[in-house]
């Protein structure tokens, strides 16, 4: 593993570096928990790493909570998410996903940006953010930003919409619905070991009900079940208007079948495709049990 490294200290310097390196082969490095492993397994020649971890701008490193949304800079770590009381209260799915990511040590360095941009089908924070229908704020080397829904962000395993002159600047999550009374929100991860594991299957959900207990918002995402994390839109639509605590067995099954229609799992060293589907089906039903 060998590479050259450049350490921009501000976003402005970062933009300059990206422009200068357009004709070269470069990668970004944030917490390095994916990148170093990848480069050790498959070294890349003449690689320049643009080190994001010394950039001080709070838009890039900070977590801000305002009345209509939460914004996380790309460099916010899993640890920072876990420790934030408000996130734990408003978005249990995100808190739990960050808490199941790897280990205490890795959570200190692993960033939101790295989890999204590595585009692994089993990215835990990424899966929670899909269930929350987050928006990705992408900046290009002229300093212009655009915001795209996370459902358009992943193109395939290890592939995102980010172009060579762009990077992820931050992620936005909308505030919960003003009418929401109860929030049913969790991250369910099945692995072959309890911790430190890429999931065999994961399911993230964030469901809000109104005063009457009727579902007014539903976000469900599946991980490790398809080439990318997927948002189970039909399953979400199916829930709207139903009473959360009055979902019958038949409806649970129909919901789970709809979730499963988004799955296209593979058989690998961790589990067979059949097993993944069975688990996902049962996990989906378990939301209401």
């Amino acid at each position: 593993m060998d590479f050259e490294i450049i350490n921009p200290a501000t976003t402005l310097e970062l933009l300059g570096t990206i422009n200068e390196l357009q004709s070269k082969h470069f990668r970004f490095g944030a917490g390095y928990s994916d990148l170093l492993m990848e480069l050790k397994k498959k070294p890349e020649e003449n690689l320049v790493v643009i080190n994001l971890s010394q950039i001080k701008d709070t838009a890039f490193t900070g977590l801000t909570i305002s009345p209509d949304h939460v914004r996380m800079g790309a460099m916010v770590t899993a640890h920072k998410i876990v420790m934030n009381e408000q996130l734990n209260k408003d978005y249990p799915v995100l808190h739990q996903a960050a808490l199941t990511l790897a280990s205490t040590q890795i959570r200190q360095v692993a960033t939101v940006g790295g989890n999204l941009c590595t585009a692994s089908p089993s990215g835990d924070i990424a899966c929670a953010l899909v269930a929350l229908i987050a928006h990705c704020e992408i900046m290009d080397s002229t300093g212009k930003t655009k915001s795209i829904p996370i459902t358009d962000f992943f193109l395939g395993p290890r592939k995102t919409v980010i172009k060579k002159n762009e990077f992820l600047n931050g992620v936005l999550v909308s505030a919960n619905n003003k009418l929401s009374k109860n929030i049913y929100s969790a991250f369910l991860k099945i692995g072959t070991r309890r911790s430190m594991e890429c999931s065999v299957v994961s399911l993230a959900y964030h469901i809000q009900t109104d005063d009457d207990g009727d579902i007014i918002h539903a976000g469900v995402a599946i991980g490790a079940s398809a080439p990318t994390i997927r948002f189970a839109k039909d399953a979400c639509d199916y829930l709207i208007g139903k009473r959360f605590d009055h979902i019958h067995q038949k409806e649970k099954e129909e919901f789970a079948t709809k979730v499963l229609s988004y799955a296209d799992p593979i058989t690998d060293i961790r589990a067979t495709a059949w097993y993944r589907k069975e688990v996902l089906y049962n996990l989906s039903k378990s939301i209401f049990e």
């Binding site: 490294i5 350490n7 080190n51 040590q105 890795i106 200190q108 360095v109």
Partner: peptide, 17 residues
Amino acid sequence: INEAPVNSCLYLAVNAN
């Protein structure tokens, strides 16, 4: 690193600065 536990095998020395 600044009182928090980190795997030094995956931590670039440059970032120790």
